[in-house]
Simulated assay, not measured.
Amino acid sequence: MPLAVIALMAAAFGIGTAEFIILGLLPEVSTGMDVSITTAGMLVTGYALGVVFGGPVFTAAALRISRKNMLLTLLIMFIVGNVLSAVAPAYWVLMLGRILAAVCHGAFLGIASVVAADMVPQDKRSRAISLVFTGLTLANIFGTPLGTWMGQSLGWRAPFWVIGLIGVISFVGVAALVPSSPNEAQGRTLHSEISAFRSGQFWLAFAIAGLSMGSLFAAFSYITPLLTDVAGFDSGWMTGLLMIFGVGLVIGNLLGGRFADKYQIGTLLVAQALMVVVLLVFALTAQLPVIAVILLPLMGGAGFGTVPSFMSRVIDSAGEAPTLAAAMASSAANGGIAVGSFLSGLTVEAGWGYTSALIVGAGMAALAIVVTVVSARTERRALVAA
C-alpha cells in the first residue's frame, strides 16, 4: 500500500481524536469556560453540524483546485481550528474552533477516500479506503482515551495543542507523499459533480451509509449508562471497555476493506445482519457483564465493517464525479448518527430504559439490510437491461 495512504490515515487519526475528545472533557470545559454542562455539550452538536453541512459546501467551493491542494487547505483549517480551541478566551471562540475542525472532518475523509482509491488498482480500492478510516478507528483506542487523560491531568486545553501538532505532522506527510495531479481539476465543475445526484444508486448508497452508521451510534450514544447502570460495571472500567469497543472498530473496518473489493454487497449484508443479532442479544442480556464484554467489540466491528463498502459504493455510483459524492457520504453517515442518537434519546426519555437504544439500533440495521437488498436488485436489473 502506498505511503501516501499511511499519511492520510495519520491525518484521519488526528481528525477522529479531535471529534471525540470533547466527550471526555465536558466537565472540565464547563468549569473552565464557566458555562453549564448542557452549554458545553452544544460543542458536540456544533461539530456534528459542521461535518454534515460544512464538508459538502467547502468541497463544492473548492472543486477547481486539485485534490491534494484541497487536502492541504483542509489540514490548515484543522490546525487553525484546534489552535483556536486551545487558546479560546471565550466560549464562542471555542465553538468557532470546533466548527473549523469539523469542516475539515467532513470534507477531508471524503476526498482522502477518493485519493486513496485512485492510488491503487481497482481490486484494492476498498482496502485503501479502509486504511484511511483505520486512522479514525485508532483514535477511539488511543487518541481519545489518552487525550481525555491529558485533559483531566494538564487542563482541557492541552489535548487541543497536541491535536494541532498532529495536524502539522499530517500536513507535512500529505505534502511530501501524496502525488500531485496537475490536470486533475480540469473539467471538474459543480454541475458535473451534481450530475451524479441523478443516479438512484447514488441515493441508495447514501441511505445505506446513514442507516449503517445510525444503527451503531443509536446504541453507542447511551453505552456508558447501559454498562454502569444495567450491566453493573464500575465507572472505572469505562476506559478499558471503550478501548475494547475501539479494537472491534479497527478489526471490523480492516476486514470490511479486505472483503468489500470482491464481495461489496455481501460484506454489507453480513455486517448489517451481525449488527441486528448483536444488538438484539445485547438488549436481552445487558445485565450480564461477561456477555457485554464479548458483544462490545462485535458491535463496533459490525458497525465499521460497512464503511469501506458504502464509501466505495458511493464513489463507484458517482462515475466521473466522485469528489463531492464522497464528502456527501461522510455527511450522510453523520446525519444517520444524529438521527440514531436522537431516536434512541426519545426512547430513553420515554422511560423505556437504556436497552431501548439497542433496539433502535437493531431496527435501523434491519432497515439498512432492506435498502441494501433493494440497491443490489436495482443494480442487477440495470445490468440485465443493458
Rank of each mutant, 00 (worst) to 15 (best):
R157A: 07
V250N: 13
S66F: 05
I65W: 02
F108I: 03
M9N: 12
L279C: 05
Y354V: 03
G232A: 11
G200C: 07
R125L: 00
N253K: 03
L3F: 14
I294S: 09
A286L: 06
I359A: 08
A185I: 01
T144M: 12
S181V: 10
L138H: 03
G340A: 09
L255T: 03
A90R: 11
S212G: 14
L8F: 01
V276M: 01
L43D: 11
G41Q: 11
V348F: 07
V132Y: 02
I22M: 15
D261F: 04
I65R: 09
S312G: 01
D261Y: 07
A302R: 13
S341K: 09
E184N: 00
G110H: 04
T38V: 13
R380A: 12
A18Q: 04
A107G: 05
M275S: 12
V277E: 11
L280I: 15
A302D: 12
G240H: 07
T355N: 11
L295V: 13
L216K: 09
A368Y: 04
M238C: 04
Y91N: 02
T134H: 00
S199M: 02
G319A: 12
R381L: 15
G305W: 02
G147A: 10
S344C: 07
S181I: 07
S375I: 00
T323I: 03
G110M: 03
L100E: 10
I37M: 15
M299N: 14
A286C: 09
A386N: 12
L3Q: 14
S235C: 06
G110L: 05
P27W: 05
A102Q: 10
T378D: 09
K262N: 13
I315R: 00
G81C: 02
I21W: 04
F233I: 07
V276C: 01
G147R: 08
G147T: 07
P159I: 01
M42G: 15
L26K: 09
N183M: 11
S309K: 10
G257R: 04
P56G: 02
F233Q: 04
F245D: 14
F108S: 01
G187W: 08
A385L: 06
M95Q: 13
M1P: 03
G236S: 11
A117W: 02
Y354S: 01
N183L: 11
P121Q: 05
T38H: 08
A218H: 05
A318P: 07
S192V: 00
A61M: 15
A88V: 07
I194Q: 02
L226C: 03
F245G: 14
G46W: 10
A357K: 07
L25K: 15
V270G: 03
F13C: 13
A61T: 12
G319Q: 11
R377I: 15
M364Y: 06
L63A: 08
A90C: 04
M328D: 01
E193D: 06
N334A: 00
W156G: 00
F160A: 04
G256E: 00
A158M: 12
N82A: 12
I223D: 13
R125F: 00
L72Q: 15
G200Y: 06
G147V: 08
C104W: 05
M95S: 12
P2L: 10
L190R: 12
W352H: 06
L274P: 04
V314K: 00
A107T: 02
I291A: 14
R381F: 13
D123M: 03
F220P: 02
A117K: 03
V250Q: 12
L358T: 08
Q264R: 15
G151I: 09
V57Y: 07
A292V: 09
L131V: 14
D234W: 10
G266M: 15
A219E: 06
